[in-house]
Every structure is written in C-alpha cells, then in structure tokens.
C-alpha cells in the first residue's frame, strides 16, 4: 500500500493548532464578556416553574 500519510498529517497538525487557538480565544472572550456570571444559571430554575397544570401526578 502506498504511503500517503505525510503531506496530510502536517495539514492535520495545523488544523488542530487552529482549533486549540480558537477554543482558547473564545474562552478568554467569554470570561471578559461576563458570560460566567450568576445570570446564566437563572434559566434552570425558571424551566421548573412553567408548568401550567398538575396533570399526570
């Protein structure tokens, strides 16, 4: 079987580096933008309260 690994494996390294960089960028950006504050947890309490009736209990 012919060996067609090398040119493309370098492409793969480059891709992984770009992805890691992107992930880091968005992590820092989201911390700066205040995404990790208390507000973003409100929704999990609200979803419990939106039931319109008590059927099925």
């Amino acid at each position: 079987m012919q060996d067609y690994t090398y040119p493309s494996i370098f492409l793969a390294y480059l891709l992984f580096a770009v992805f890691a960089g992107g992930a880091l960028y968005f992590l820092i950006r989201s911390i700066k933008d205040g995404y990790w504050g208390k507000d973003s947890e409100e929704v999990k309490y609200r979803m419990l309260a939106d039931e319109e009736n008590k059927y099925g209990e």
Binding site: W36, S40, E41, V43, K44, Y45, M47, L48, E51
Partner: peptide, 27 residues
C-alpha cells in the same frame, strides 16, 4: 435535560456545564 429536572422537580446542576457539552458535541 428537560425531563430529569421536571420529573424529579429538582434544578439542573449547572447550565454552563451543559453549554460546554453542547458546543463540544457540535464541533
């Protein structure tokens, strides 16, 4: 994610953690 909190009437542990799961799945 809907029916576990609903049928137990307990809030989800962490909504932010669920977001990490979502975006990593998407990618």
């Amino acid at each position: 994610y809907y029916f576990i909190p609903k049928s137990g009437n307990i809030p989800l542990y962490s909504h932010k953690l669920s977001m990490i799961g979502f975006w990593s799945l998407a990618f």
